[in-house]
Amino acid sequence: MGCFHSTATARARRRYPGYDHPMQLASQTAFSVSEVEALFELFKTISGSVVDDGLISKEEFQLALFKSKMDNIFANRIFDLFDVKKRGVIDFADFVQALNVFHPSVPMEEKIDFSFKLYDMDNTGFIERKEVKQMLIALLSESGMRLSDETIESILDKTFSDADVNQDGKIDRAEWENFVSRNPSLMKIMTLPYLKDITTTFPSFVFNSKVDDI
């Protein structure tokens, strides 16, 4: 096992609020210690892109994803799920733990849970028709796509008649699991092949490592 560089870790904690030691984060996730350190290289770049405060703001999150300061309701929602402590910013531990869900090795159950929360915007434990409609209208408007209200209602009718098996007007967790198993393309976004190759993408982690013999 590697030895603990307490000074370097203490420095990282001061510089990056919420910083946890790579070995600790690796033990809680599908990432190896080296992969956590490679993710730290990515985190440093994103968290310093607007304000260099060691935390990722919503603006920095969107800038990293879209390479421009565009607003996207779906990205906002993902940010809210990454922001586990609900402080309006993402620290390094939040970042690693949330990205972990997108790791190819993580069980589908966890990915389905995350995707369910993504659409359950008011956290009632159900995906309600009004939430889906609200997100759909906002995204169509942001992307410049025009669909009549009649078409949107017809798409929602069809979706809910398929997904909402007990026809109570909302989709529960079991109905969602059943629906995505029949529509696997919906889960494509939940797996990031890049995460298997993170140490190659950010090789500089080796020079900044705070853990020996990784």
Binding site: A64, V132, S148, I155, L156, T159, L186
Partner: peptide, 29 residues
């Protein structure tokens, strides 16, 4: 309005298409 293929999508497929969100953006230059 809206082409036929769009109308044939379910609401969640349409959300995915309209958001064009892909977290791969984090790893791309």
């Amino acid at each position: 309005p809206g082409d036929k293929s769009t109308r044939q999508m379910n609401a969640f497929q349409l959300i995915g298409m309209a958001s064009s969100l892909d977290l791969s953006g984090f790893f791309e230059e």
